[in-house]
Simulated assay, not measured.
Amino acid sequence: MSGVTGLPGLAVTATGLCLFAAAVALARRGRTPEEGARRDRASLLGIGIQGLGFVIVATGPIRVALDPLAASAIGKAILTAVCLGAALALFLWARQTMGRNWSIVARTRMDHALVTAGPFAHVRHPIYTAIGLLLVGVALGLGHEPRLVAALPVYALGTWLRVRIEERLLRMQFGRTYDAYAARVNRFVPLVF
């Protein structure tokens, strides 16, 4: 039932968002700027635009179905849990695989390694795929699926800005090695895109 949610969906959404926020906060804990890091703060614009996609799906009235145990309410909660669970699992896997290379703002370090293992063997930007799944999960959980028509292109624009900056930094650091990796691994969805 598009445009309507249930209490189970709202509970799953709140739980999923809290877990994802905690995962990001834990990933950032204890991080200090490295000497010789090459940063591009222009990626902050991309982060802001991606965030606008979340504002689009998260705002507006929420219509809650009266029966929390209705099949539609339970079904939507399950779909929401799948999206949010997949987003969290993919983020954690990618973050663990990246190790010290991970940061929120685009940058490379002097000892930066080109990560091609784990989820990076399948897609070049698994964290953006995870955040896209988070966006879809939030829309489902709040009953705001129609808002994805506007939110997904906004999120895609912010992601494109960030990817362009990150890939430029990686090409500067790794040259042909990165080009060869990019030629064999898609950006966001294995074998598709």
Results as ranks from 00 to 15, higher is better:
residue 167 E to N: 11
residue 47 I to V: 15
residue 21 A to V: 13
residue 161 L to K: 12
residue 124 R to D: 00
residue 24 V to E: 14
residue 79 L to E: 05
residue 37 A to H: 13
residue 65 A to Y: 08
residue 106 A to Q: 03
residue 112 H to F: 06
residue 115 V to A: 07
residue 18 C to T: 12
residue 97 T to I: 10
residue 63 R to M: 00
residue 84 L to P: 08
residue 1 M to A: 11
residue 132 G to W: 05
residue 81 A to C: 08
residue 154 V to T: 13
residue 74 I to Q: 06
residue 104 I to N: 10
residue 80 T to A: 05
residue 29 R to I: 02
residue 16 G to E: 01
residue 42 A to R: 15
residue 134 L to P: 08
residue 80 T to Q: 04
residue 22 A to G: 08
residue 139 A to P: 06
residue 54 F to S: 02
residue 179 D to F: 05
residue 94 A to G: 09
residue 22 A to T: 15
residue 167 E to M: 07
residue 179 D to S: 09
residue 34 E to T: 02
residue 41 R to L: 10
residue 15 T to I: 07
residue 31 R to Y: 14
residue 132 G to C: 03
residue 135 L to D: 02
residue 168 R to K: 07
residue 56 I to E: 08
residue 40 D to G: 05
residue 18 C to A: 15
residue 13 T to I: 01
residue 109 R to T: 15
residue 16 G to I: 10
residue 58 A to K: 02
residue 129 T to E: 10
residue 92 L to S: 06
residue 87 A to V: 11
residue 125 H to E: 06
residue 88 L to D: 00
residue 182 A to K: 09
residue 140 L to E: 01
residue 127 I to S: 06
residue 173 Q to R: 14
residue 184 R to N: 03
residue 167 E to W: 10
residue 163 V to F: 07
residue 74 I to H: 12
residue 24 V to F: 04
residue 168 R to V: 05
residue 104 I to Q: 07
residue 105 V to S: 05
residue 149 V to E: 12
residue 11 A to T: 10
residue 124 R to Q: 04
residue 69 L to S: 11
residue 91 F to S: 04
residue 63 R to V: 04
residue 62 I to G: 03
residue 16 G to W: 03
residue 90 L to R: 06
residue 79 L to Q: 02
residue 6 G to D: 09
residue 122 H to A: 05
residue 107 R to H: 15
residue 88 L to S: 08
residue 157 L to H: 11
residue 23 A to F: 04
residue 102 W to A: 01
residue 125 H to C: 12
residue 76 K to L: 12
residue 154 V to S: 13
residue 101 N to L: 10
residue 171 R to I: 12
residue 150 A to K: 06
residue 144 H to L: 13
residue 106 A to H: 07
residue 101 N to V: 06
residue 7 L to R: 08
residue 79 L to V: 08
residue 9 G to F: 01
residue 48 G to I: 06
residue 152 L to H: 12
residue 7 L to A: 12
residue 183 A to C: 03
residue 72 S to K: 06
residue 71 A to L: 13
residue 77 A to K: 01
residue 96 Q to P: 07
residue 184 R to Y: 00
residue 45 L to S: 12
residue 116 T to L: 10
residue 123 V to S: 03
residue 48 G to F: 04
residue 163 V to K: 09
residue 88 L to K: 12
residue 54 F to V: 03
residue 126 P to E: 03
residue 121 A to M: 02
residue 149 V to P: 09
residue 27 A to G: 15
residue 55 V to K: 01
residue 47 I to C: 07
residue 123 V to G: 02
residue 80 T to Y: 07
residue 12 V to L: 06
residue 120 F to N: 04
residue 41 R to W: 15
residue 171 R to L: 15
residue 142 L to Y: 12
residue 82 V to S: 05
residue 166 E to D: 09
residue 184 R to L: 01
residue 64 V to S: 04
residue 182 A to V: 01
residue 51 G to T: 11
residue 33 P to I: 12
residue 121 A to V: 00
residue 113 A to T: 13
residue 30 G to V: 11
residue 16 G to Q: 04
residue 184 R to S: 00
residue 109 R to G: 13
residue 100 R to T: 15
residue 37 A to V: 11
residue 177 T to K: 00
residue 67 D to H: 08
residue 189 V to P: 01
residue 6 G to M: 05
residue 108 T to V: 08
residue 64 V to I: 00
residue 158 G to D: 09
